[in-house]
Write a protein that binds this DNA or RNA. Structure first.
Lengths: 214, 214
DNA sequence: GTCTATAACGGGATAGAC
DNA sequence: GTCTATCCCGTTATAGAC
């Protein structure tokens, strides 16, 4: 199998950054040209299919990176809690601790949703399957495991968006820090029937007396 | 105060739909013209500032609708659990039970992020403040209440994206159904230290024996 | 392989008739 | 207020020199 010229893969990183930052519709060939240092014609040399092919290749490229640097942390003989802690660390690094967007979420909402429906779906599926496998290993039923995995991805996506909107990384950091215990907790997304009365502060925070207004 | 012509507000609904569906960059004047039934020049009659003004007005418009049909459910003398259940119902309706995007999240990722930074931030702030007020009323400390409110919004955003990506409403519906109890639960986002061992199925599901592979 | 130049097209925005 | 016609510019995409 003849591998593609070396320039292509390094260009792909720059291209990915542009799509992540500006979305699919917002990424112009001019911008892509500047970001890669290649002229427009050169881009078409590497990607005859134009912008659409660039985006498709970016998905492939990111998918491979995500697999090796994030999802693979869920493999191996360690216990589920250990795996999930590794995973959470890797996720935080992968998204630059909340400062970098998820390109999948970005594409879905910025013009690539219809165009790359299949790739986006299978990307989500890869993450769900990997997480669900660990949860199943931890003792959750098949359906419950998949639901928890989906919910976890949703929280990740949402935390990234909120962090971006507000310009603060803290929502993402909080989410990713709580992720391992949260995923294995008894009923994190269904509420705990055991404790209907809310506490007046958590045990790890100073929890000054609640000052209600008025 | 002279109120604007009637055609403007009905056009605004169609315009909002276009932005929600295609994002800011993806919404062309041609599309907007077709969706509203107005010619381009007529659109400029109503919105001299062009597309940017349309988007800005859409935010205002949606903000008012969100306030009256969703956030106002958190007002009144009822108990926090009652308010949050009302809120969850309203949210589900507001987003067409997972089939409709959040325009704020969409805009952030589709070209309007820089342009409408202030409006987007204040929109998020309105939701956070409204939810945090209820949580404070429920006894949470000021900081914890805001964090929980942020986390809830993040989950909502993420659930909408995952639902859209996967084409299934179930992640969103699950999230919104669990929202009231989840928000008041002891430590939903920080994991419960009391139960390190995961159960083998939840109490409300058949929970067939976990079938691990291999 | 990479460049300059340019074609073909669609975008946002305006003018002016009605 | 709404329309048709038009302008200007940026965009995608290609041709052809080097």
């Amino acid at each position: 199998m003849d591998r593609k010229p070396a320039g292509r893969d390094v260009a792909l990183d720059a291209i990915a950054d542009v799509f992540r930052e500006h979305g699919y519709d917002g990424a112009s060939l001019t911008t892509l040209s500047e970001a890669t240092g290649l002229g427009k014609a050169s881009l078409y040399h590497y990607f005859p299919g134009g912008k659409a092919e660039m985006a498709a290749e970016v998905f492939r490229h990111i998918g491979v990176k995500a697999q090796s640097s994030v999802l693979d942390t869920l493999q191996g003989g360690d216990s589920p809690p250990v795996k999930l802690r590794r995973f959470a660390k890797a996720v935080s690094v992968f998204y630059k601790h909340g400062r970098m967007n998820c390109i999948v979420g970005t594409m879905v909402l910025s013009g690539g949703g219809k165009l790359f429906e299949e790739q986006l779906k299978s990307s989500v599926e890869a993450w769900v399957a990997a997480l669900a496998a660990v949860l199943a290993e931890a003792g959750f039923g098949r359906v419950a495991a998949r639901q928890r995995a989906e919910d976890t991805l949703a929280m990740l996506q949402g935390a990234l968006i909120v962090s971006r909107s507000s310009g603060q990384a803290s929502p993402f950091l909080r989410m990713v820090r709580a992720l391992p215990e949260n995923m294995l907790a008894v009923d994190p997304l269904r509420g705990s029937q055991a404790n209907p009365a809310p506490p007046n502060g958590s045990k790890r925070r100073p929890a000054r007396a609640a000052n209600k207004r008025a």
